[in-house]
Design a protein around this nucleic acid. Structure first.
Length: 278
DNA sequence: CCCCAGGGCCAGA
DNA sequence: TCTGGCCATGGG
C-alpha cells in the first residue's frame, strides 16, 4: 500500500477488501452520501473529502499525504488484514462464512469517538434515514463551517454550553437531553473516551454508561465504531432476529476476538435478506 | 388508525 | 434480575 500525492488529491494503491457502499452506507457512519458515479462525499475529523474506488486504487479528493497518514489510513482501517480475519471467523459457523462472503468489502471505520457516541445516542429507537437527517442538522446548527455549506461535527465544548431546548431544531425528541448529558460529561472529563481504548471491556462499557441514554447497545457501538474495540458485538433488533433465526443457541461471546467484524457481516447480510425473517 | 425504527429509563413485580 | 409502558418523530 503506497500513497501518491497529486494536485489536490491522493491515490492509494493495493487497497483490497474495501467496498465503499458496503462500508460507508451500512449503518456505522451517518455522514457519507453517495454520488451518481459511485463516489462518496463525507466529512470526518473536520476534513471534507470525496472518495472513489477504482479496482484496488482508492482516490481521495481534497486531501494530501499528511492527512492520509494522520487521518484516512486509520479511518478506513487500511492496515488491518480483513481477508485473514474473514478466513478466521468463517470457521466459526457456516452462515457467518456465507455472510462474510456476501459483503467482503465491509471495513470497521475508526471514527471520532465523540461523534460515534453522539450518533449512536441518536440512533436509539430510530431509523437510519432519520438518524442521518438529525446528525446533519446537528452539524449545521452547532458545528464549525469548514467550507461553505460544509460543517464539522460539533465539539463537546460547544454542545456542553447548550441546553436540551437549544437542540429543538434537530427534531431528535427525547434524545436531546441525552446528547447534552454526553457533551457535559465528556467535556468535563467525567467520562474519558480515550481511556476506553485500553480499559478492560466491561470497564469501558461502564465508563460510557455513566451517560444518561447510553445503555449496553449504544456503548458497544461507540466502542466498535469510535474506539475500534473490534471485540464489541452490538445487538440491535436486527441482530436479535439474526441470532434467533440464523445462530440459535449461540452467544455474542462465541464470535471471538473479532466479533465486531463478524457482527457487521451479519447485520448487513440480514438487512439485505429480510425475507429470512418472515 | 396502525406499526416500526441499529434503545434506554423507570416502576412494579 | 426481568418485564411492559413510555418516550418524540417521521415514514410506510
Amino acid at each position: 500500500m503506497t500513497c501518491t500525492e497529486f494536485d489536490g488529491y491522493i491515490c492509494i494503491d493495493n487497497v483490497t477488501d474495501l467496498d465503499l457502499r458496503q462500508t460507508l452506507d451500512c449503518g456505522q457512519s451517518f455522514r457519507w452520501t453517495e454520488n451518481a458515479d459511485g463516489s462518496f462525499d463525507g466529512i470526518a475529523f473536520g476534513k471534507k473529502v470525496r472518495v472513489r474506488l477504482d479496482g484496488e486504487r482508492l482516490y481521495i479528493e481534497n486531501s494530501n499525504k499528511a492527512d492520509f497518514e494522520s487521518i484516512w489510513k486509520d479511518y478506513f482501517d487500511l492496515e488491518l488484514d480483513y481477508g485473514k480475519i474473514r478466513e478466521q471467523i468463517s470457521e466459526i459457523h457456516p452462515v457467518l462464512k456465507e455472510a462474510a462472503k456476501y459483503a467482503p468489502g465491509i471495513r470497521i471505520l475508526r471514527q471520532e469517538p465523540y461523534e460515534a457516541l453522539c450518533t449512536f445516542i441518536i440512533s436509539q429507537n430510530n431509523n437510519i434515514k432519520r438518524i442521518k437527517g438529525i446528525v446533519q442538522r446537528l452539524c449545521e446548527n452547532f458545528g464549525e463551517e469548514i467550507s461553505p455549506g460544509d460543517f464539522a461535527f460539533p465539539t463537546p465544548q460547544k454542545m456542553a454550553e447548550l441546553s436540551a431546548d437549544d437542540l429543538a431544531p434537530l427534531r431528535a425528541g427525547f434524545r436531546n437531553r441525552y446528547l447534552i448529558d454526553a457533551a457535559q460529561k465528556v467535556y468535563s472529563g467525567e467520562v474519558d473516551l480515550e481511556s476506553c481504548r485500553t480499559l478492560d471491556y466491561e470497564q469501558a462499557r461502564k465508563e460510557l454508561m455513566k451517560i444518561t441514554g447510553v445503555g449496553v447497545k449504544v456503548a458497544d457501538c461507540t466502542l466498535l465504531f469510535g474506539l475500534h474495540r473490534i471485540e464489541a458485538f452490538p445487538v440491535d433488533v436486527w441482530m436479535k432476529r439474526a441470532m434467533d433465526k440464523l445462530f440459535p443457541g449461540m452467544m455474542p461471546s462465541d464470535f471471538g476476538d473479532c466479533a465486531g467484524i463478524a457482527q457487521q457481516y451479519i447485520f448487513h447480510y440480514s438487512r439485505m435478506h429480510p425475507e429470512l425473517f418472515d
